[in-house]
Write a protein that binds this DNA or RNA. Structure first.
Lengths: 337, 337
DNA sequence: TTGTAAGCGTTATCAT
DNA sequence: ATGATAACGCTTACAA
């Protein structure tokens, strides 16, 4: 029996007589042939049947961050439709080991919120497969999905300014690949390796600078982790830098929850004593009526998947900017008199 | 320049002179050679560098279930260590299409809480790669990880019996691959395709039967989704079948939250009017002090990963049964007099 | 240190 | 309807 016939028996049952097909399958059982080898098939067909996903952090991190989860959910829905697997590629930011990226058998990559200079990102973009970046700076020839972080954060700044706040503090997420928890000077703010954080800080800065508030007086504190605990300790540090602030701006909802926890511990009322804002619009933020910006994470994942899996790929890179919505909540009010 | 030299330049930089290596890399750049093809490499080395994961539901479901998430987190931690990617394989229960399973380029499979007769599971086990099943019945020659669902649920039953409950109702998760929301007779309970649900119901039944309570009088209601909404509607249905129950047993914490929501809507107090129990011990259950059984999801994922990735594989299948802890909370009390 | 040659297991093309 | 042949791109003994 020839190879071709066996291949057809598995892949094109209609191309050969049912009895021959049965004979093939029976022989396979007898001989212990487990069916076509996926890797060899991929080599021949030039299709891996999987999409690679690069995340900011080690794999397990993604399962703790509600925002990353929603993105993943949107992306997997597209993968389901395209009958494509999703390969979570280990890409710890502190590791320089890009072997996992360069040897991942995938038909394309999605990079989500990676730092601009991450070697894993570089390695993925260097691969001769399509890629989509999400929440990252545009790269020549690479499709991208994102929001206008700058404008969204400026809205939050303007909201606080309208309420009358002038002395504020900021807790932001990591700005580089190394742990650098502490106060952030303007140089580091501008040179942040994370597109999203850089733009949010810049947007806030623009709002305050326009209103005539000196930005270099505003304490900005960095935390590596996006966790409630990090938000709490970040808020504590901001308050130690300027105990007189009337509002705390966090660059994520999760950090804002931590800030609120710390304020509560200090018996400071929100918003009567200190206003707090977040960013993202995760479920808990809506429940607790945090003043925040809602961004469509699920839709981001959808769009990223669609761009990557769209068979009719355009000759030039496409760029999707999704809408955000400023959502005033009960955690902001006029500063105390 | 020979193929070998190029291969060595990429894979064994120490095996050739630095200047030659540089010459190779430069030539690669000039010629636009993107580096070794991962698929061809996998074919040759017989290593895919990825582990396949089969989940009960479509991929996106996993990102909604806190239990599945914790399992994933534990598993990915092991994958990180082994520098192996994790391939989420689309395996919708209602689909018979196993192509994604049989053509996934993986070095092994982890199957998590799949129904016993799922064709995707069969296809994965038929592949000539190692596999680990989790929360599933033992399969000849396949490593397994799980808990003693039967004993754990019996504990819950005994707890309720000790408090004096005799008329109870049950809300369980799906027992088969098709949506069959509604009351469940004993035949369907015993024939449930989901190992976990089957054993939990059997454990509860044993406790009540031993105490002399006729099990066939106890309303058991099935819901396909493991969601708060499903728990609420399931509880409502149980209450319509027997308005006189003094306790509601849910086979998951999430369903229990739904049951509590429905009881609150009916102005029934928990636990004064009706007791409620869950299963899993997710974070929210601990916060709300739900009476439940805590099971180590993270550890389950760890163990599954370890078994699969352990290079020193035993000749015979290994079986890991993890401990659970009965956690009495504030949602159970003696029935009203 | 570098090169030669033999597969890895498929599927596409073409011929019968 | 079925079969022969030629890649797919790589790694790895082994030889030079």
């Amino acid at each position: 029996m020839s190879r071709t016939t066996v291949s057809n028996a598995y892949n094109r049952p209609d191309q050969l007589s049912p009895q021959l097909r049965n004979r093939v399958m029976e022989a396979a059982r007898t001989l212990g042939y487990p069916g076509p080898d996926p890797v060899a098939r991929s080599l021949r067909t030039r299709r891996a049947g999987a999409v690679g996903l690069l995340l900011t952090d080690q794999l397990s991190y993604a399962f703790r961050d509600p925002a990353a989860l929603a993105f993943l959910e949107g992306l997997t829905l597209e993968c389901d439709i395209a009958k494509t697997g999703l390969l979570l590629v280990p890409a710890k930011p502190e590791s320089e080991d890009i072997l996992a990226v360069s040897s991942a058998s995938v038909d394309g990559f999605v990079a989500y919120a990676m730092p601009d200079d991450d070697p894993h990102l570089m390695a993925a973009l260097a691969r001769p497969v399509p890629a989509v970046v999400c929440d990252q700076p545009d790269v020549e020839g690479v499709d991208s999905v994102g929001i206008d972080d700058h404008a969204a954060m400026r809205q939050i700044g303007e909201h606080l300014l309208d309420l009358g706040h002038r002395r504020i503090g900021v807790v932001c997420m990591r700005l580089g690949r190394a742990v650098m928890d502490g106060p952030v000077d303007i140089t580091r703010q501008e040179g942040a390796r994370y597109h999203v954080q850089r733009n949010r800080l810049a947007g806030l800065r623009e709002a305050f600078t326009r209103a005539g508030v000196a930005w270099d007086r505003i304490p900005v504190v960095e935390r590596f982790d996006n966790s409630v605990a990090a938000g709490a300790s970040g808020a504590a540090e901001v308050l130690s830098l300027d105990p007189g602030i009337t509002a705390l701006v966090a660059t994520s909802d999760v950090l804002a929850f931590g800030a609120m926890q710390e304020l509560e511990r200090r018996l400071q009322r929100v918003p009567q004593d200190v206003s707090v804002t977040g960013f993202d619009g995760v479920a808990e933020a809506r429940n607790r009526e945090l003043t925040t910006v809602v961004q469509p994470f699920l839709e981001k994942g959808h769009q990223a998947g669609k761009l990557l899996l769209d068979p009719a790929r355009r000759p030039q890179a496409r760029k999707v900017i999704l809408d955000t919505e400023f959502l005033p909540g009960r955690t902001t009010a006029a500063p105390p008199v």
